[in-house]
Design a protein around this nucleic acid. Structure first.
Length: 404
DNA sequence: CTTCGGCTGACGG
DNA sequence: CTAACGCCGTCAGCCGAAG
């Protein structure tokens, strides 16, 4: 058994034991001290969210944009207007524009002075990196969730107090504004889920702290849709059962909830509704890399699609070399003109990083997909690799301390 | 019996 | 004349096959 497997095992035992603890069952005695800590010492967690990040970054590049409605979009290139809104500033939101919206639709809502810009991902990654570096210097453990969001465990540095956490949050906001001229919103609470909901509570430039023990008071009046994990589908299901606030979710009959959402999701949401979230702040390694794109023309021709996929594979391969990883599984995904998606995957006998193995398998998988889904015409196609392993020379050891 | 591979779908930024 | 759609990434759930 190698070191990583051992650590995995430890983590599993820890998680299972925590569950037992909650159910008042017996604990493995050797781990008692951990539960003493977990029970008597609440964690202090910050969730930091950069405000309307892509659009704010554009305002930074060109300050003349400030004050006008600004929409940052990702353009597919097939028609001048096809694409979707990535982010927009608050002036644009006032017009009814929001992220995820098709650009053509956003343009209808836009006013004359509204400005549309294409996303400049490279620039954002660079800015984000600088911000994340600042954030890391303030915490005991760190977890970047996306380009503009991170969790910070500041239990020690705040002396396990929410007020201590607020002080740190203010310092962070000041430093990010001073050095990068960006505003952010911060939530402070005893768990990741509550910190996340708190950071969204007041935006932009917000700071929301939830006192220890007041989690339910904070959550109960909110609409269930504020809980991360409740998207459009789940929201609709809950609404049909007259569950619209977190309080109603908490009080809803649990066996009905299980029947509605499945056991895992029901347990998770029920716990979230009480502000319970035992998940810890930790960096989680990448599990997959992918590239996806929209074809200039809809197609169901093997040759056309394969040529398109080869371009994506080339870019993906570059990324794989940069990241110094090996992969074991290759998959392709197609999105049809009706926006249905289909996937095919193949796992190899051994890890590799060769472009040849990507191309060969992509070809095979594409043949398979097209023959199994006759009559479908495709709009977008993508390729991804998973089952990642680090290249041996890059392997670095993690400390046991990371997990206690 | 558990685990793994393959696939779909929900979700989030 | 009209026009509704990006590009990532994670996780759960289900199935069948393999160990």
């Amino acid at each position: 058994m190698n070191f990583e497997k051992f650590v995995d095992l430890l983590k599993k035992i820890l998680k299972e034991s925590l569950k037992c603890f909650r159910g008042n069952l017996l604990l493995p005695p050797a781990l008692n001290f951990l539960f003493f800590k977990a029970f008597f010492m609440q964690r202090i967690i910050l969730h930091v969210d950069l405000d309307y990040f892509f659009a704010q970054a554009e305002e930074l590049k060109n300050p003349a944009l400030k004050g006008k409605p600004l929409v940052v979009g990702i353009y597919s290139g097939r028609t001048p207007d096809s694409g979707a809104v990535a982010t927009c500033n608050y002036e644009a939101r006032a017009l009814g524009i929001h992220s995820g919206m098709p650009l053509a639709f956003a343009k209808k809502k836009a006013s004359i002075e509204t400005i549309f810009l294409p996303a400049d991902k490279k620039a954002y990654v660079e800015i984000s990196g600088k911000v994340m570096e600042i954030l890391q210097s303030y915490c005991d453990s760190f977890e970047q969730v996306s380009i503009d969001e991170a969790y910070l465990d500041v239990s020690k540095k705040s002396n396990n107090s929410i007020q201590g956490g607020e002080k740190i949050a203010l310092q962070i906001k000041a430093e990010i504004f001073e050095k990068e001229k960006l505003s952010c919103s911060v939530g402070i609470a005893s768990s990741k889920i509550v910190a996340k909901i708190a950071s969204a509570f007041k935006k932009p430039d917000g700071l929301t702290a939830v006192e220890l023990g007041k989690e339910m008071d904070f959550l109960f009046p909110l609409p269930v849709s504020k809980i991360s994990g409740v998207g459009p589908k789940t929201f609709e299901l809950l609404k049909q059962n007259r569950v619209e606030t977190v309080k109603q979710l908490f009080e809803f009959d649990f066996s009905k909830l299980k029947a509605l959402l499945g056991e895992k999701k029901a347990i998770l949401l029920k716990q979230y509704s009480e502000g319970i979230d035992e998940s810890i702040v930790e960096e989680t390694g990448r599990k997959q890399f992918s590239r996806i794109g929209t074809m200039k023309k809809d197609s169901n021709s093997f040759n056309e699609i394969f040529m398109f996929l080869q371009e994506l594979s080339k870019e993906l391969h570059l990324r794989i070399l940069q990241e110094k990883v090996l992969f074991k599984t290759i998959s392709i995904a197609g999105i049809s003109t009706k926006l249905e998606s289909f996937q095919r995957a193949k796992t190899l006998a051994d890890e590799t990083n060769s472009i040849k193995s990507i191309d060969e398998n992509v070809s095979e998988l594409l043949k398979k997909l097209l023959s199994e889904k006759p009559g479908h015409v495709f709009r977008r196609f993508g390729v991804s690799v998973s089952g990642l392993a680090e290249k041996p020379e890059k392997r670095n050891q993690k400390s046991l301390n990371d997990f206690v």
